[in-house]
């Protein structure tokens, strides 16, 4: 059964140009062309529920997420592995759909899925399907981008609207359902990052996934020992995302994104980097949201719409819909 599943479903679906995804237990890859660079490795496990949501599914999410984790280190993503935990009884047609979107996402991001593993567990031991992807990429020599690189005087750029992914998923959750044209922003960001690096200096990058933009900014501030001031009126939020957040009592600042990044860029480079971002399809709505300051170190402040100032904190626990 497992053998058939792998040979008839997984291999044909995921196999790329490279002959390495096959029956061997390891993919053996050459990194010769990247001499002088450094290897970036990452892994992440995807358990999103529901598995299918407007704008994507767990498959493309698993590819894009790992591609983006590599990209945020300035790495050029090259190879992915994929591990599947499938609950017994999970529809094969759904699995095929998920694999197909993984392949498409990998092609779009120009990466190859080179090794895989599948386990089927008893009904009730998993929630439909879980996917782990690991990724390898190369950081070109001389490039050093981390989440700790913020410097006072930098400006902060976000690559588009926030909260789309989280609200797209929530819109399909049992008991909370609402109709909207909100779609997940799930997308690979390696192309955008390449364009940005070509355009100018980048001091720090991160993709604001779980915990939303707020959590990323708080991590930025505390890891770099700097202060951050953002302007509430500059935050890009799509109207239906705002509406849905209002209905459920959520704050888009804390809602997950899967195809956005925040960059800290020296003021002198901001204009050219921003222009380069806006030329890329996934960065068309890029905008400056704030700046990096020396004090108060470790804190994120927000200038509110009405001109007040307040602290932005990390999200504690999952954001729950509230009536009150």
């Amino acid at each position: 059964m497992m053998r058939e599943l792998i040979e008839e479903l997984f291999l044909p679906a995921l196999k790329g140009e490279c002959a390495c995804l096959g029956s061997d237990d390891s993919a053996v890859l050459s990194l010769a062309e990247f001499s002088g660079g450094r290897l970036a490795l990452t892994t992440d496990t995807y358990v999103v529920s529901p598995v299918f949501f407007p704008g994507g599914n767990i498959g493309d999410l698993a590819v894009n997420g790992t591609v983006n984790d590599l990209s945020m280190a300035g790495a050029r993503p090259l190879y992915l592995t994929a591990g599947f935990v499938v609950e017994e009884g999970f529809p094969v047609a759904d699995l095929a759909k998920i694999l197909d979107s993984m392949k498409k996402a990998a092609d779009r991001a120009d990466v190859m899925i080179v090794a895989g593993d599948t386990k089927v567990v008893e009904h009730g031991k998993a929630d439909g399907i879980f996917i782990n992807t690991a990724g390898a990429g190369m950081v070109p020599a001389g490039l050093d981008i981390t989440a700790r690189g913020l410097k006072p005087g930098d400006v902060l750029i976000v690559s588009g609207t926030i909260g789309d992914h989280g609200m797209a998923v929530l819109s399909k959750r049992e008991g909370l359902d609402f109709e909207s044209d909100i779609k997940s922003d799930s997308a690979p960001l390696n192309g955008l990052v390449a364009d940005m690096i070509a355009a100018g200096d980048i001091n720090a990058l991160r993709d604001p996934t779980r915990g939303g933009l707020a959590s990323t900014l708080v991590e930025f501030a505390s890891e770099s020992g700097v202060g951050i001031v953002i302007d509430e009126s500059s935050l890009p939020v799509r109207e239906p995302v705002r509406g849905a957040c209002e209905i459920l009592g959520l704050d888009p600042l804390y809602v997950a994104n899967e195809g956005k990044l925040v960059a800290s860029v020296p003021r002198a480079a901001a204009k050219t980097v921003l222009a380069a971002m806006r030329k890329n399809a996934v960065g068309r709505e890029s905008t400056i949201i704030g700046e990096v300051v020396a004090e108060p170190a470790g804190k994120v402040l927000m200038k509110t719409i009405i001109g007040g100032t307040r602290l932005v904190d990390m999200l504690s626990g999952e954001q729950l819909p509230r009536i009150c």
Partner: peptide, 9 residues
Amino acid sequence: IFKSGIRDL
């Protein structure tokens, strides 16, 4: 009140 920064104003 907190979210809009009214206390600060």
